[in-house]
């Protein structure tokens, strides 16, 4: 990250440092992601958000499971834990409880968080553990070569649904809201500003927050489903996405084809005592905490 548009003259000037240089691990770049992949944008938004919020970087911890998305933990320059497939949420739960001062975020893929790790997502949200979960939904298992996953839309082609998927996918914001997440939002990687604002909000909010990022995976999903390369998929997002904070849950279903809209927005923003707050309340009442 060393080239930057210099403004008025329209020349490209090479500068020594990019404003996000210190937030990304320079010695680990370039990243492993494919051209056109949405993960770079998702990570940039996150890097910006963690810097903007009023929480020291040294108190922020980033965790992930396994997958292309899971690699984000290795690129962001905060304490980071790249755990096992699907297990970042329970790992984060232990970490947060052991040191409540930390601002803990799990960044992972749709397969990681909702197939193999689905049960942990349910329980962390139910307990209202004070962690943030950010899911990059690219509608497939990118890392293993584009297989069907729990968010693959009906009819979509993947390497294991050659005749079109005949499973109903999860509606993630609906799921998160139903099990008690205190903040739920969804954006595409095109909605950088909104996404970053949502991330800032989530980072500062107490309780279990959830952000879904709709992201192009040209390699595993875009090409087989005629969404094209990354840029074309972004064009598709621009044409089809609708910001609707008060959308009904049905409207949040994703089809990723034809004229069906991609509804994005901030859907839930509420308060509920967190796991640690309730624990403290109970123990105090029994005289076990001063």
């Amino acid at each position: 990250m060393s080239a930057k548009g210099a403004g008025n003259e329209g020349k490209i000037e090479t500068v020594e440092e990019h404003p996000l240089d210190h937030i990304l691990r320079q010695d680990r770049l370039p990243h492993i992601w494919c051209p056109g992949c949405g993960l770079g944008s998702a990570m940039t938004c996150f890097a910006q958000a963690i810097e903007r919020v009023d929480i020291p970087l040294k108190k922020q911890v980033l965790l992930s499971g396994i997958g292309c998305t899971g690699r984000i933990a290795g690129y962001v320059n905060v304490d980071s834990y790249h755990t096992t497939h699907g297990r970042a949420i329970p790992f984060a739960t232990g970490l947060k409880i052991a040191n409540p001062e930390l601002c803990v975020t799990v960044f992972s893929g749709d397969g990681d968080l909702f197939a193999i790790g689905g049960n942990h997502f349910l329980h962390a949200a139910r307990r209202n553990v004070d962690i943030n979960v950010i899911c990059v939904n690219n509608f497939n298992y990118g890392m293993t070569g584009g297989q069907q996953g729990p968010t693959t839309p009906v009819e979509a082609k993947t390497s294991t649904t050659r005749y079109g998927s005949f499973e109903h996918p999860f509606n993630l914001p609906y799921l998160a809201a139903a099990i008690g997440a205190v903040y739920v939002s969804r954006w595409t990687t095109l909605h950088c500003r909104h996404l970053e604002k949502s991330m800032e909000k989530a980072l500062q909010k107490k309780g279990f927050t959830f952000i879904e990022i709709i992201s192009p995976c040209p390699t595993g999903f875009g090409r087989p489903n005629k969404l094209g390369e990354g840029l074309e998929e972004l064009r598709y997002y621009r044409e089809k996405s609708v910001i609707k904070n008060d959308a009904s849950w049905d409207e949040l279903e994703l089809h990723m084809r034809g004229e069906e809209p991609v509804v994005v927005g901030d859907f839930v923003d509420t308060e509920r005592p967190t796991y640690l707050e309730l624990e403290e309340q109970m123990l105090r009442a029994k005289g076990l905490m001063k």
Partner: peptide, 13 residues
């Protein structure tokens, strides 16, 4: 699975 993940997380803290 979650139990041991949480234990490792707590230890890392």
């Amino acid at each position: 699975i979650g139990s041991l993940a949480a234990v490792l997380g707590a230890s890392c803290a």
